[in-house]
Amino acid sequence: MDMLGKYKSCVAARSTSSEILKCSQDGGIVTGMFVYALEEGIIDGAIVAGPGDEPWKPQPMVATTPEEILAARGTRYNISPNMSVIKDAVRQYGLDKVGIVGTPCQIQALRKAQLYPVGLRNVTNKIALAMGIFCMENFSYQSMKQIVEDHCNVDLHSLKKTDIGKGKYWAYTNRGAVSQIPLKVTHKYEQPGCHVCLDYVANMADISTGSVGTPDGWSTVFVRSTNGDSIWKKAVEAGVFETKAIDGIKPGLELVTKLATEKITKNQKEVEHRATIGVGKGLRNPYI
């Protein structure tokens, strides 16, 4: 299994916009990229995790203005089924060039949908930019609520930011308090479907990004497809991002590779374990 997938280049990067960085998760790569692509006409809208009807519950939305994209900044650490609105983006919003951000599994879903577009007539050829985000696992909204409210003792209404890093789950409140719990405690609340996932850094995205490997406020960026490469180069040339070669960065690709290997090895074992979980009977393996 290829741990980091195919890529044309890898850099440390962050947005040059202080407005974007104010509320972005790390380097503001996805937000910066979509705002730039929207302004340049590379996309005419993007599927992002917008605000939902409960605190910290994401709602997939088709953003067609920079303001809407900015409003969707940051990681929510619970599920936003972004693929669910892909048909709406084309049919209801009339977009010809769709941007989409997704976790590795969502990008896998997108690529499968492009190759086997079973119920998506005239939709999948309109994907202009797929941004992938690194992902170790995800939580349902109810699990996230359980972790933040029960374990971290923080009301979701007063939560300012959550983060996973340095082996801990972090909850920051609007009034400046910080609550942290060992990441270990959160494991049992993980979404079961994540345990068979064999992709950590969104290997099939045009461009994938995440915090791991780079210092606070920066992101690691893999530029993967020909399409992604061409858009990334234009964006960097236009001064949308500040970049540094990944080679000199600590902890750099070594940590990304380590975590990817850990995730994929563990989940590969889970796939094998599932096959013999019963007495002479097993569970389904989706990978063929």
Partner: peptide, 15 residues
């Protein structure tokens, strides 16, 4: 089967 990860492709594909 413990395989769903909530991507939403099923919802988009349903005619």
């Amino acid at each position: 089967q413990g395989l769903c990860m909530g991507c939403g492709t099923c919802a988009a594909s349903c005619p």
